[in-house]
């Protein structure tokens, strides 16, 4: 088991949002977490990545059998957890390639692998950029600074490609994307999908799932998973709306 979430209760500022969530993710799987606004989707992403303002009240999260909750966010990242942000942050003055090489090398050091020098890294980055069809001119630009919404999301997928996480959580990656940008991002994710990693797609809409076919769909409501199924569940959900699952819990 790559990720095991057991009876997770978590929240923010004393307010419980996740109320007993269970989830199991194996390598090679793509899971979609869907749910209405306020259902706890975003909280789940942030708790998994280790956001400091979210607190875990009870429950366990195991990553490759180890307690993930004990690790700092940067340690989780080096262990192979990656989160693509809904609103990626700008880092002025630091170029994309400098930033990515720092991140890459931190992970390399952690795993006892050789660090890449700027030239070697540039070759590596060029290859990875093809996955999201990104022009190498973006390498020299400051991280996300002045990027359009679509460019920022592509940049998130580029980071995922460079860091090769075991578990990637894409938090509302489809939000605010036009159809072309969505296709590029989705194609990028499909290329990165492998038997060696797992992907959690957190999304409100089914739109993204037209491009990335999940193995499992989990519907979240009121901080719990209220319905689970295969990819056909997303279609049913779209046809019937979230009220349908809300009805199912009552």
């Amino acid at each position: 088991m790559l990720l095991e979430v057991k009876d997770l209760h978590a929240g923010i500022e004393g307010k419980e949002i996740l109320k007993g969530l269970n989830l199991q993710v194996k390598k090679g799987e793509v899971h979609a977490i869907m749910g209405p606004n306020g259902s706890g989707k975003s909280t789940l992403s942030k708790v998994l990545a280790g956001h400091p303002t979210y607190e875990v009240i009870s429950g366990d999260v195991l990553f490759e059998g180890k307690n993930l909750l004990e690790l700092e966010p940067d340690e989780r990242a080096r262990e192979g957890v990656f989160m693509a942000f809904q609103y990626p942050v700008e880092v002025p003055g630091v170029s994309n390639s400098q930033f990515l090489r720092l991140a890459y090398n931190q992970k390399a050091i952690h795993h006892g692998r050789e660090e890449l020098d700027p030239l070697e890294f540039n070759d590596y980055l060029k290859e990875k950029a093809k996955i999201v069809d990104m022009d190498p001119q973006f390498f020299k630009r400051s991280v996300n600074e002045g990027f359009s919404g679509g460019e920022k999301k592509r940049n998130e997928i580029l980071q995922m490609a460079v860091l090769e996480p075991k578990l990637a959580i894409l938090d509302e990656t489809d939000s605010g994307l036009d159809i072309d940008a969505l296709r590029i991002v989705a194609e990028g994710v499909n290329k990165l999908r492998s038997p060696e990693n797992a992907i959690i797609l957190v999304t409100h809409y089914r739109r993204l799932l037209n491009y990335i076919q999940p193995d499992f769909v989990h519907v979240l409501d009121g901080g719990k998973i209220v319905k689970e199924g295969g990819k056909e569940l997303a279609l049913e959900l779209e046809a019937k709306g979230y009220d349908w699952v809300k009805g199912a819990t009552n």
């Binding site: 990545a49 280790g50 956001h51 400091p52 303002t53 700092e72 966010p73 940067d74 989780r76 990242a77 080096r78 990656f82 989160m83 942000f85 990626p88 942050v89 880092v91 930033f99 720092l102 991140a103 931190q106 992970k107 952690h110 980071q159 860091l163």
Partner: peptide
């Protein structure tokens, strides 16, 4: 905090 968190999630030490 949000900016710092972003960099941490990329594996950069604090």
């Amino acid at each position: 905090e949000e900016e710092l968190f972003y960099l941490l999630t990329r594996g950069l030490p604090e």
